[in-house]
Amino acid sequence: MRYYAYYPGCSMEATGAPVEKAIKAIAKPLDIELMELEDWTCCGSSPFSGVDKVKAMAITARVLAQAEKTGLDLVTPCSSCYTILHEANELMKDDHKLAWQVHEALTSVGLNYNGTVKVRHIVEVIYNDVGVEALAAKVKRPMTGLKVACYHGCQQVRPEYGYDDREYPDWLARIAAALGAEPVNFPLKAKCCGSSLVISETDMALELIHKLLENAADNGAQAIVSTTCPLCHTALDAYQSAVNGKYKSHFNLPVLAVPQIIAVALGLDFKQAALDGNVISPRKLLSPYLNSKIAAQAPAQKAAAG
């Protein structure tokens, strides 16, 4: 069992609820324990940096200070939280004035941060700590024949984290392949969905989402496997009908957050995988897999045993 401090981020309590539920469902089978921070508050995300940078870094630092007390790596599924938590860590190392202001603010509420927390994205944890081979060995329902476009989005890989390519990452396709699915070519996999401005610049965001859906469909994808970012998942899933309305298109692409497709492959049912929370229902597409008999022993395990 591996232990992590866990920061879900605000969206996971609302639009990201199905992604969150699926993460909790696969944690145990993947031997990871996500220990949610107590009384956590918003990280500020990018909009708060557009209001006041020092205050933004201070509220991000509150999350880091809470995580530091646990002595564990801090894992988040939200790409926006991931980027800003990383940024606060980096900026406070270089900018002593900022570090002092944040320190004073934290001290005023009895907190302290020494800059030791390692911030990690849950997809990276699944890829590096669980590992694709171990994941493949746990598969009870191979997703054979399912053509998927794997979408990383922007902030999971940018600005710079050193885990994977910043513009043409590969993690999700490798994870999907480990589950038996067939990743299709998807050139726009690390382009932005625009969801940070989907409320105020709806048309612009719909244009970006339309490009992504079109690119996935043109390459033969039957579904999108999205990163765990609740903003990406909601943009592609819940806004799909709005895209169809604006562009007179007929997309009906289920958007499976990566923990959802992992859950199905591990043998969990439709509800456990939180697929009933998806606006574009994947029930029809996944029914051959969901109805397939769960292999008593996964093929890879058999090979290892044999």
Partner: peptide, 14 residues
């Protein structure tokens, strides 16, 4: 959440 009081105190401090 309770933590909001801490956030506002931190904002005030800044």
């Amino acid at each position: 959440v309770k933590g909001r009081h801490q956030l506002n105190q931190m904002f005030h401090n800044i």
